[in-house]
Design a protein around this nucleic acid. Structure first.
Lengths: 248, 248
DNA sequence: CCGTTTCAGTGCGTCAGCGTACATACAGGG
DNA sequence: CCCTGTATGTACGCTGACGCACTGAAACGG
């Protein structure tokens, strides 16, 4: 779905131009220029924006959509290596030496995005210093998070990782309730669905969460944080490797 | 150990200025300027250049040294999330929003490095566009590798991961023989030493490698590649996420 | 209202890797 | 030549997660 940007802008229902934090931190002139090259679009839950090995034709700046990045192994198992909301963007690597996607990008929450042609972006990147600096910082933050995910998925038990994922999701969606099936969580955590069921019911029995048919509610955030691994404290926005460091 | 740069330069035993590929790809003026801010130093095997949480005071451009990056979990277990040789650098993140190190940087092979004050580097980074662009590309390449490592350490069995590590090491050191104890490999792979012993003896029984007291020799590189996971093909220099993409 | 789809729960055998402890074995220095 | 430190090999019980198969139950659409 594509929405005409000019008419859409100003509607109370559609996020405004400045609502992508990454773009918002550009100097005003550059911001305007970049946005003039973007079109507003809506993406639906489950939509696949990138697939591993496929060429990257567009870049995306989520406004209120949330996209998760899944690394794929042998075509079957997947592992979430990052997520992109309004604080970030997708496809930056196209200007940094990779023409094809390394990971699968799946829409976790439907919403609006700004979309841009890869070619246009590369041209702007080459001549816009503010953009280069911003992307350096952003990529570095993604790297830090990917490293933490590598450690976490290697050493921490599923129950703790699940707790972390739920807390991160809560922070991103700014809500104690959200929709996330065991199946989806299994893909994000790189485990079987039954493993999630087991871990989730353990958390539920401890009174930390409750869920039914994908509708998850966090009942005791503090308890959940105690049950999670320390990674949550590091990764959350004000943690030492949170996205906060991108926007000085 | 610090070596006077001017006298050292030109010696047949000491790598020349251009031998860091990352620096070498800078425009000549910028290269000269950066190098004027560097001092030549030697680092010893096992030396720890960065420790998690510690401030980053210096940046390093390895010449012939090899440094591996170990993410640390709970102070005990570690996992290699990258390695830096003459194609890369350490500490770039200091100019990108992180004042402290996230990972432990340990010298795997002793050798020479160029060393630079963090403050000097940040100043140059702010005003040197060529450096920004280079760092964007390099950080993106590190991200790609970290993602692959996350997948690999999550889904692939130890024997295949060990094979991959040995092949990568061979490529970096350009030699079929090198020194690497089971203990060291265990830290890199994030497993127990006995696990490495078991996997290594399996590889040895298949006639792919031979080793004794840390002296490893690759006997059958093709066979070892067959025993490794597909990650090796991706990560090696000419693979889709190899470092080749950093240097156009 | 009923069939289909989606989501969650359970059971069972298997296995890789863990923690621990102990046993060799080679290397180099005094 | 012994002695000590480093490097490697072996054993044992444990557990978290795997693969697979099947059941139960709510939601949805015609």
């Amino acid at each position: 779905m594509i929405v005409n940007f000019d008419t859409a802008h100003g509607s109370a229902l559609i996020p405004s131009r400045g609502s992508n934090r990454l773009l918002a931190s550009l100097p005003e002139d550059d911001l305007d220029h970049i946005q003039s090259l973007c079109e507003l679009a809506m993406v639906d839950e489950g939509e696949v924006l990138y697939a591993p090995g496929q060429p990257i034709s567009h870049l995306y700046f989520p406004l209120d959509a949330l996209v998760c990045l899944l690394a794929v192994a042998e075509g079957r198992m997947t592992l979430e290596v990052g997520a992109v909301g309004r604080e970030g963007m997708l496809g930056a690597s196209v200007a940094l030496g990779h023409q094809t996607a390394q990971v699968r990008a799946v829409v976790q929450r439907a919403g609006y995005v700004l979309r841009m042609e890869a070619g246009d972006f590369c041209r702007e990147f080459a001549r816009m210093e503010s953009l280069q600096r911003l992307l350096s910082r952003y990529t570095d933050a993604l790297l830090a998070q990917a490293i933490q995910i590598a450690v976490c998925s290697r050493f921490h038990v599923l129950e703790a990782r699940l707790a972390r994922t739920l807390l991160v999701t809560r922070d991103r969606l700014q809500s104690e309730r959200f929709h996330l099936t065991h199946e989806f969580l299994a893909h994000a955590l790189g485990v079987r669905r039954v493993g999630v069921t087991k871990a989730a019911s353990a958390l539920q029995q401890q009174g930390l969460i409750s869920y039914s048919r994908g509708n998850i509610e966090i009942l005791d955030a503090a308890g959940l944080e105690a049950a999670s691994c320390g990674c949550y404290a590091l990764v959350k926005d004000d943690g030492s490797i949170g996205m906060g460091s991108v926007f000085l």
